[in-house]
Design a protein around this nucleic acid. Structure first.
Lengths: 218, 218
DNA sequence: GAAGGTGATCTTACGGTGTAAGAGATTGGT
DNA sequence: ACCAATCTCTTACACCGTAAGATCACCTTC
């Protein structure tokens, strides 16, 4: 008996696992987008017929919820933080950005599904604790997190994504004569080296706004 | 000849129009959600077979783009603004919020499609002009708009939507024992009367952040 | 060993989807 | 009255999610 962790099946048994199913689904989404995931295609990727998947997941919605949970599970766990709450917030936001940029198809998932799995709730609880200890009342902290998540989603979805094919950027070659400012803004922005800077400055602005919010309510 | 604007068809002709198709599609989305819109169902709503729609729209994607354009066309046109750029930004954001809350299914559309129709680009150009005249460099103005739109989308999608069924709110009855801060935050936030306040404060914080951004770069 | 039970996998089927291809009907222009 | 253009329908195909049940591989117990 070499390794007892993995059952090695023979014959027609493939040795599927809920975890393997979710991982394959996530890979498929990363490669072909959310639309590219179907039970039949996922089954094919796993070397199995579509219906087999239903032994590990009750239906496709549950599969998608599981994928979302899988994504958050892979992200590093919330470790004890250090630094000011501003730095912590920045790290929190960057962690979310990295997560979403690594799996672009997930953004749509987050908005479609309730997405209130234990993993996402855990991340939220983490953020709430962070801000509450920094002095924010809990309802305000909830607002800040909503705002921050909104900012992140907006940034990722707007195309400042990792693959660099900014939607607006692709438009520059097309007809923008009717919208001169957009054309100028995009070309001037493209000249800037750091692609992440737009998000960082927006994030910084938001945090600055929170600072005055904290000082006036404290 | 009573009214020459509307051709009154006899026989099997229904007198369809691209505009009528888009309006019916938007109504269907508002009523049944984005998933509830299929060519066959839309056809039925119009008193027509599904394939007929393809005479007014090349395919479903184009139909969805058209719906998105229709939504923005219905919003009031950008009038000459008054007040400080802060007030203008607030109005800009509220206009977007109203738009998205009136048609909740549209949020997903905005994130799925490139959504670079002439109407959406027009709204963007409008915002750019506003901020540019206020003194922001164009690339920075573009960042601010992205951030603002992200904030709006985040707020609407997070469930602070008009119908009041906040996703987190529904969770309160369920098991939140593992996430005590979320439970407290939600219940305390629910005690506040004005449901729009969370967004307003986040928006205010963001604008405050932009202010210091403008003063340091000018 | 053989028998039986338990779970994993496959087969088949149904109603839904978007849409390509072409037939049929209605209309306005001559 | 005819034609040409436009609108609408019919049929068909490949795909989708999944309900129901047969089939197969393995483990346990004799």
């Amino acid at each position: 008996m070499s390794s007892q962790g993995e059952r090695v099946p023979r014959g027609r048994r493939v040795g599927l696992t809920r975890s393997k199913v979710l991982s394959a689904a996530l890979e498929t989404i990363d490669r072909d987008g959310l639309q590219g995931l179907s039970m039949r295609r996922l089954g094919a990727a796993l070397g199995v017929e579509a219906m087999t998947i239903y032994h590990y997941v009750p239906n496709k919605d549950a599969l998608l919820d599981g994928v979302l949970e899988e994504v958050f599970r892979r992200s590093q766990p919330p470790e004890p933080w250090t630094g000011s709450w501003q730095e912590q917030l920045r790290a929190y936001a960057r962690r979310l950005v990295d997560l979403l940029q690594a799996h672009p198809g997930i953004v749509l998932l987050m908005l479609q599904r309730p997405a209130l799995t234990s993993q996402t709730l855990g991340m939220m609880e983490y953020g709430l604790k962070m801000l509450h200890e920094a002095g924010f009342p809990l309802p305000r902290a909830l607002q800040l997190i909503h705002a921050l998540v909104g900012l992140v989603i907006g940034h990722v979805a707007a195309g400042g994504a990792a693959d660099g094919h900014d939607r607006l950027g692709r438009l520059v070659q097309e007809d923008l004569s009717a919208f001169p400012l957009i054309g100028r803004a995009v070309s001037e922005a493209a000249a800037e080296t750091n692609l992440e800077e737009p998000f960082e400055t927006a994030l910084a602005a938001m945090i600055r706004g929170f600072e005055t919010d904290l000082s006036t309510s404290a």
